[in-house]
Design a protein around this nucleic acid. Sequence first.
DNA 1: GTGGTCTAGACCACT
DNA 2: GTGGTCTAGACCACT
Lengths: 122, 122, 122, 122
Amino acid sequence: MEISKTGNEPIYIRVVNNFKKQILSGILKADDKMPSVRELALNLTVNPNTIQKAYQELERDGYIYVVPGKGNFVSGKITKVKNQAIKDEIITLRNITEKLYELGVSEKEIIDEIKKIGGKLK
Amino acid sequence: MEISKTGNEPIYIRVVNNFKKQILSGILKADDKMPSVRELALNLTVNPNTIQKAYQELERDGYIYVVPGKGNFVSGKITKVKNQAIKDEIITLRNITEKLYELGVSEKEIIDEIKKIGGKLK
Amino acid sequence: MEISKTGNEPIYIRVVNNFKKQILSGILKADDKMPSVRELALNLTVNPNTIQKAYQELERDGYIYVVPGKGNFVSGKITKVKNQAIKDEIITLRNITEKLYELGVSEKEIIDEIKKIGGKLK
Amino acid sequence: MEISKTGNEPIYIRVVNNFKKQILSGILKADDKMPSVRELALNLTVNPNTIQKAYQELERDGYIYVVPGKGNFVSGKITKVKNQAIKDEIITLRNITEKLYELGVSEKEIIDEIKKIGGKLK
DNA sequence: GTGGTCTAGACCACT
DNA sequence: GTGGTCTAGACCACT
């Protein structure tokens, strides 16, 4: 994993988002072992506290679980977490769509914008 | 103007959004005088500081301008502000669409979601 | 005089700036009669109060003087007013130049910028 | 940090400018922790609200970012902020130069003024 | 009368 | 412990 040291967000947030992406996309699978806090801290040359914070947040959000004395592991309930993440994003999507309608943007223009992104990602 | 006292958002944000809607929709027009800080604070039975905060946010966002000793007035450059607001929302729309793609949601599902909202508003 | 009705600033401020330009540039000369408040209000289709405010500000700033029952006239002390205006602008120029130096912009770059504007105006 | 209590500018503006200078000059670096709102308020013997206002302005201008419950930190995008600050100052420089031309000040006089400041700072 | 700043201090959510 | 919001109210400059 590479984490650029500069950016708008604190390092631990970027570590969190990085792992979330890997877990949601299936690169990291259920019960896979996460790198140990110390190991990852050395790799990224950051303070172990930073990694500790990141892992705590991942656990709170249901992405990983801790086995004391063993390490951190990817949760088996990723489908549930994923569905929640999708629901959250859909709510935001609705809010933005409503605002765009209020600002006079047409349904067609919004859909065109979404198709553009789909095209890019393929 | 009515501002419900309950809800998740802070009062000053609700005041801001309320005025933004009225200005963008044309209910409030260029150079219209805004209610004075004290007057509105009394009407809504909130602290003048809360209204002050709301008005300063509206000014920073280009919706109103201040004439010292005279009051706050609706900006004449609302078209410009509106275009900027649309640009900002489109950027967020793109970010969310990307995340939804990453979460495995298809283009069709996203577009269906948008059409649903269009249907409701009509 | 033409005053566009839309813009960032209130109308009376634009009336003020318009007259200041005309007086400083010599289009309006010492002891020239200003249009009457009512006449100008009709021409610009604004409230007479707006023009009254503008004239009061021009008087405070030393650009015009009032002869009760006769009207408003361009001041004979424009040189003095002009010198003060130049002094004020020079102070701001100094502050900005200092900030630009602090931001790492070189003397040459600043001077080039000024020459560019000189070129445009010619 | 020392903030003189006397002067024309409001306290919160002086706090803002002080930090901007330190961040732009590199004394404060990306991801450095800012003093907490309460801590700094105690140090400068001002009200926490005043520091809060200063920090919110710094955040809006892109100089710092907030991690809820953790504190304020110096942004990693200072280069971008710096370039924006330069652009803003150049625009003001142009406006003032135009006004000075209108007031009859020659290009040479303006450039001499700028060279004077360059001389002082060396 | 108008907005702008500031104090003193409370309560909240989140870590 | 941290920032965010809000009340209650004072004082200021400017119109």
